[in-house]
Each structure stands twice: as C-alpha cells, then as structure tokens.
C-alpha cells in the first residue's frame, strides 16, 4: 500500500511538472524553482507534513520536499531563537541532501568523463 501511494502521489507531482513544461512552455529551471517555492508554501500552511505522512517517499523524493525541509528546519530553530533562528535552521534538515549532492557530484566529475 505504501508503494502504491508513493507511486501515485510522486507520479502526480511529476505530471504537474510535465504540464507546466508542455502547456505553459516553462524552462526546466523555472519549473524546479517553482516547485521548491510551492513546497515551502505548503509547509507554511502545515500541509506538506500530512502529505509525507500519507505518501511517504512519494512526497519526500520530489524536489518540493526540499522547500518543505528548508522552512521546516528554519521554523524548528525559530522556536528557540526567534527570528535569528530562521537563518540558523534553514539548512538544518536539508544538510544531508545538499552535502551528498555536492560530494557525489564532485567525486563523479573527478572519476567520469562526459559521454555527450
């Protein structure tokens, strides 16, 4: 059941992206940026956590979860430190994602050669 919901919700999010790509002719960069902003917005209203609860990886794997995690980390830290906490916590939950992306990206670039 978990797999079915992850598939459906994750697929649906990608489908929205494809519609923006085909119908509204947005560039990939514009779409990905919009999705991150939407993820943060949904978290601002506390909706995204429900989606994760419901769809698991269907909600954590799409890039919208990046926006959600950024805001989530910021708000957690803000509970203790107020406004300064926002800046302190923004990368708190996304740290592992960004770190691994930089690390693996760098290592792969060192080892491989572009194939074209």
């Amino acid at each position: 059941m978990d797999f079915l919901w992850a598939f459906l919700v994750g697929g649906l999010i990608c489908l929205i992206g494809q519609i923006l790509l085909d119908v509204f002719k947005l560039t990939p960069a514009h779409i990905v940026c919009s999705f991150v902003v939407i993820g943060a917005l949904l978290d601002a209203f506390g909706i995204y956590d429900n989606l994760i609860e419901f769809a698991g990886a269907g909600a954590t794997v799409p890039i919208t979860s990046f926006g959600h995690s950024l805001l989530h980390g910021a708000m957690e830290e803000a509970k203790q430190h107020g406004y300064i906490g926002l800046a302190m916590g923004i990368f708190k939950l996304t740290s592992s994602g960004i770190t691994s992306a930089i690390l693996f990206g760098f290592l792969v670039a060192l080892i491989f050669k572009p194939k074209g």
Partner: peptide
C-alpha cells in the same frame, strides 16, 4: 545545457 543534463 551540459551534455549529461536530463532536461528534455
């Protein structure tokens, strides 16, 4: 884009 970029 870079040649390995996955944008369609």
């Amino acid at each position: 884009y870079p040649t390995e970029y996955g944008g369609s």
